[in-house]
Each structure stands twice: as structure tokens, then as C-alpha cells.
Amino acid sequence: MSLTSTLRHFNRTYTQRIGVLEDSFLGTGRPLAASRVLFEVGSSGGTTVRTLRDRLGLDSGQLARLLRSLEAEGLVLTAPGDDDRRVRTVRLTAAGEAAYQDLERRSEERAAALVDPLTERQRDRLARALAEADLLVRAATVSLERVEPTHPAAVEATGRYVAELDGRFPGGFAPGGPDAPEPGAVYVVAISDGEPVAYGGVRPIDLADGVPTGEVKRMWVHGGWRGAGLGARMLRHLEQVARELGHERVVLDTNGTLTEAIGLYERAGYTPIERYNDNPYAEAFFTKPLSRGTRP
């Protein structure tokens, strides 16, 4: 059976057994879509309309209809934000909190009933398999978007990148340089469920031999996504960006403590070179020629 056939079969099996096909999801009196919006608002302690739209992949009209249905039940309130009146916030009412807790209880009971016939060993196998499947499906549906470094997702990703390096480098990490990219630089963020999960950029760099060269910078992958192939995908994407910018090769530097990153670069065909910059944190330097016919 092919991967797509297996996935479709699983979808049919799972949706039938968790109540998705019913007009009243889990007997709540609400369909699945409205229940999911209620869950997102409740689990986040309140959020914004834009965040809900990005996280759930809904268009504005569909989300507006779902919110109106929940408002009609007295479960949510939408209002302008305290700090920015242009931002619409969503929070649960007291009745909404009770409905959210009821939804959580019903969902937990349905899940427990599904796995109750399984042995402990089978449950462990299922938990591992579902966690792996969840990660890979989300990795397959990540969107890669070009952004300015001042974009909120880029700022968040950069902050996590800096915090991770600061924790891993023996002497900490204190980056310098401007917040805005150099002329010709391009930055890319990977988004899943409205959140940044990977980030990186390519900037032009002048080396002594005059070959048009792009430098890969700020490569970061969320720790929870390690092992899903997202780092390799981001690297291939940045290489394609470099091609489109007219570069004939890419270079990058890294710290010796980042062994998983070094392994990624080596598997991707990068070869060691001599130091080409004065970055005090860099201990290993790599390059890769760019084939004009290659695509990510």
C-alpha cells in the first residue's frame, strides 16, 4: 500500500472513531469546527483573531462565522485589544470556560475508551507511532516564507536562536551587528500552526577569488522538530534562494559544539574550508558549489 493510500485509510478509520462525522461533536451539540475554535481559545487562555486564523488555517469569513456561533451561545467574547485597538482579541466567558472543561473531559474519555482494549505495550507503541506521525505530517505541511528580520515571526525565531546558542556555547553568546539585513540579504521563516519552527538567511559575501558567493546565516530549527528533516529542507531552500540571487556557491560557519548542525552540513554535501571571517564564535567553516539545475 502506498503512503498516500495508507494515510487516507488512517484518516477514514480515525475520523470515524473520534466523532468527527457527527453533527454534534462528542455530544456537545456543536460541530467539530466550532469545538476546535473553543479549544484553541480555552487552551491559550485567550488569543487574537489573527492567531486563530493562522493556527487553524481558516479564512477570515469562515472563522468569523464560527466565532459568531460561539458568541451566540455566550461562550466567547471578541473585543479590541488593550494595547492595539486594531487587534481583535478572543476570550472565554464563564460559560465558555465551563464548556471548554466539558469538551476536555469528553475528549479525554473518548481517547481513553479508544485505547482501553490495548495492552500497556501496545499503548506505548501507539503513543510513539502517533507522536512520530504527528511530527512528520506537520513537517510536510510547514510553509516557508520570505520575511524581513523585523517581522514578528523572524524576531521570535532570532530570539530563540540566540537563547539556544547562549545556553550551549561554553562562554555564552552575545551577537552583534545591525537588526536589519545587509543589502541583498534574504531571510526565510518556516511556519507551522502560526508559529515559527525554523529560520535562516542568505547574504552576499565578497571572498578573495571573486566567485559570487552567498553566506548562510542564523540557521535555527525548533528543538521539538529535530529529527523531522526540517533542517535539511530549510538548508535546501536557502541554497535555492542563493541560486536565484545569482550565487555560484554558498559558505557558512558554525561552532564546534553544534555537532548536529555539522552533521547536517556534511550530509548535504558541504566540505570544510579555511576560516574566511573574524567571527569569534565560529570554529568550523564549510562551502558547497551550487548546481544551476538543482531544485530543493
Rank of each mutant, 00 (worst) to 15 (best):
R121A: 11
Y100N: 05
L92P: 08
R50M: 11
E71P: 10
L63W: 00
E108M: 15
D83Y: 07
L130M: 08
L67D: 10
G74A: 00
S69A: 15
E97I: 04
A99N: 06
D59K: 03
H151V: 01
V76P: 15
A157M: 01
A111H: 15
G57P: 08
G61M: 10
G96E: 04
L136V: 14
P152G: 00
V115I: 08
D54K: 02
R128E: 14
S60E: 14
L92D: 00
A131Y: 11
D82S: 09
L75V: 07
L130E: 14
R160T: 09
S60D: 09
V162S: 03
L56E: 07
V115F: 11
V90D: 05
L92Y: 05
L67Q: 11
R105E: 05
Q62R: 13
L136Q: 15
T93W: 04
G74K: 01
L66C: 04
A72M: 08
L126E: 11
R121Q: 11
R65G: 02
L136A: 14
R110L: 11
R85N: 00
H151L: 00
R125D: 13
T119C: 08
R160E: 14
R146E: 12
R53C: 11
R55F: 05
A133Y: 11
R125P: 08
G96Y: 03
L114W: 15
A112P: 08
D124I: 14
S69E: 05
E108D: 12
E132W: 02
R146P: 06
R53W: 06
R160Q: 14
G159T: 08
A153F: 12
R50N: 03
V90T: 06
T119P: 15
T150W: 04
R123H: 12
G57K: 03
E145W: 05
A139Y: 03
D83S: 07
S107V: 07
V147M: 01
D116W: 12
V142M: 07
R55S: 08
R138L: 15
L144N: 08
T158P: 08
D124A: 12
A112K: 11
P117H: 06
L144T: 12
D83F: 07
R128C: 09
L103P: 02
Y161D: 06
R85Y: 05
L114T: 09
E145F: 07
D84M: 04
L56A: 14
V155D: 03
R138I: 04
A94R: 05
E145I: 14
D54E: 13
A79T: 13
D116E: 14
A79R: 12
V155K: 01
D83E: 04
R125V: 15
G81D: 01
A113L: 13
R53P: 02
R53Q: 12
V155L: 05
G159Q: 05
E156C: 09
A113D: 12
P149K: 02
G159M: 03
A129I: 04
A153E: 08
L130G: 13
V49G: 09
R123P: 10
P152D: 06
E71C: 10
L56H: 04
R105K: 03
L130S: 13
G61I: 09
T51A: 14
